[in-house]
Design a protein around this nucleic acid. Structure first.
Lengths: 217, 217
DNA sequence: CGACCTGTTGATTCTGCTCAATCAACGTGG
DNA sequence: CCACGTTGATTGAGCAGAATCAACAGGTCG
């Protein structure tokens, strides 16, 4: 469900932390409009030919893979200001879907250009994030995984103690290699320990950052 | 324990599958000798300033991280013909160590050059491998993890049914997010099921590739 | 209002971890 | 050459953490 819009994002409402090199990358790309993807709308699918990169203008995106028997691993979430869609071959290895509605700008290189120089730092950042995630998935227990996840979100959203959770429990579970029941239970325990509060279902208030950090690092 | 040698690798004994772009990357680098790193010798450490990339000429290398309490996650093994050492910042985020002795060539760019164009495909390959590994760590059980690991090794070493295991059980465990006891037990079960044979402690013969593939994909 | 979806909570099961003993391979020194 | 220590691998017993199965609550949207 792809809806083309001519809606241009006001640059003064840009996300808090634009990734480095993103501006120069946009400058080197052909002009493009922001496409709006409704909740759960696919941006690309595994097996589809890979082409442009994508810049999240607003909203959130999940990148995932499925096993043959339907288990899902979300490899990354992307928020406003972040670029995704890197592929090593000419086919997408992943699915990308909007979470709760997202504005996406496709970035297609103007010419051969010096695009690689802008791309490399972004690709390396993605690599670094994936590698950090490996440590979490391979060597942390459920509580530590959740703490790492919350701290990561908190750093990317610079909204102090309050963390937005645009994704649902199931998504968090598939990102952390848990079940949604376990996610729910761990949040409950963190709440009981007064490490966090749960003002609403999609928002978390961190009461004890030190406690969270002690859990995961 | 770094031993500089003037030993030059005969290119006719190059590894079976040289990664694409590696030759052009070497051509763009300053000439360098192959350094030999004895078993367990560090090639670089977490926190050390990041500089050159490294090409494995022979032997194997493990890349890993430690948690505060000493748990280890190996994010990758690298074999002859592969390049490692990508970093997104100016400090290494990982440790790199030789496994059972390895010859390593440092690759330092000659000038600014068009290095990024050669690097990007390699970085993307690393990213793709890390993402595949995320699926294994997050959503596969012990038997499936081992099957995925064996198939991966088998594809990288094109030695038909026989797989070399230069690393020890502990390394495999820390790569797959298991304990070494579990690694040992799973290998035993695969042997009992006549999916593999264990001719020696560092070699595996695959008897049933289809069976392995059915386990992990 | 009712159907559906998402989230929470409880009971039970089971996979893989922990702790522990044993064994094989290897190197060293008497 | 053999006794001894060390390191890595295997195997067993018991346990714990997270998964599974199940019931139910709250919200949303037609």
């Amino acid at each position: 469900m792809l809806v083309q819009t001519n809606f241009r994002i006001d640059t003064t409402t840009q996300p808090r932390s634009v990734q480095p090199n993103v501006p120069s990358l946009v400058a080197q790309s052909r002009p493009s409009v922001v496409a709006f993807f409704a909740d759960k709308a696919p941006i690309y699918a595994q097996g589809a030919p890979a082409g442009p990169l994508y810049l999240v203008e607003f909203g959130a995106v999940r990148i995932y893979r499925l096993t043959a028997d339907g288990r899902r691993q979300i490899s990354a979430f992307h928020f406003a200001g972040e670029v995704f869609g890197f592929e090593s071959g000419d086919e997408h290895q992943f699915f990308a879907e909007s979470i709760g509605g997202a504005g996406i700008r496709a970035l297609r290189p103007t010419s051969a250009g010096r695009m690689a120089e802008s791309l490399l730092p972004l690709a390396l950042r993605s690599l670094s994030r994936a590698q950090q995630h490996l440590l979490v998935l391979g060597r942390q227990n459920a509580r530590e995984k959740m703490a790492a996840f919350l701290l990561d979100l908190s750093e990317r959203q610079e909204t102090d103690r309050f963390i937005d959770l645009p994704m649902q429990r199931n998504d968090i579970a598939d990102y952390l290699g848990l079940t949604f029941e376990t996610v729910s239970r761990i949040l409950r325990k963190l709440k009981d320990a007064e490490t966090i509060r749960l003002p609403s279902i999609k928002q978390i208030e961190v009461l004890d950052f030190a406690g969270l950090r002690a859990l995961c690092k």
